[in-house]
Design a protein around this nucleic acid. Sequence first.
DNA 1: TGATAGATCGGCT
DNA 2: GCCGATCTATCAG
Length: 214
Amino acid sequence: MKVSPPLRRSFYGRPAPVVARDLLGRLLVRRLASGELLVGRIVECEAYQEDDPASHSFGGPRGRNLVMFGPPGHLYVYFTYGMHFCMNVVTGRPGEGSAVLLRAVEPLDGLAAMRARRGDVPDRSLCAGPARLAQAFQVGREMNGLDLDAGAGLWLARGTSVPEHDLGVGPRIGIRAGTEVPWRFVETRSGFLSGRVRGSGRAERPSVAPARPR
DNA sequence: TGATAGATCGGCT
DNA sequence: GCCGATCTATCAG
């Protein structure tokens, strides 16, 4: 599969919600040590900022969140629930403490290698959820702080844009505080989203972007 | 289909 | 100690 070059650093140097919306449709690319290429199209992500009680950066730089306060375009990987890794892309200006959590991609290439890690699950469950995605793409603690523009085995590429009428926005998942801001972005028609499956067998979807005030 | 518990460990009070 | 930007298996209805 032909893959376009990494997005430039200026892409990441914008507010997290702006980057998050723009990330939909982009390609997440991983080159394994074996040379094998894993590719997924981003269909779901969430923005986090420092003045945000749900964010790891809330309260300022310390401990594990240091990468979030570094330059944009780097990877922030955290470990949670004793067994899972999740990956974020650092956004904004250095010192700002904002990032975008990658929550789901539509697997496009390297599915066999993903299954080797994830088990024999259907395509729709391969990369649907932040921890599933990290497992499928073989991203762990050792990739925390990685420069996405350094050809270091993981980067983002142009992909195909998601038009406004396919854009869904809603509250972020798995948090207590901070559910009032609509900073979860999804491609509504995608069959590869995370979240519980509802009665009709479709993935749960947030509403479309809030209409402007009348 | 929905609810619940278990896994398992780092960060924080 | 407790809880977490989670996932999976299992149980009840």
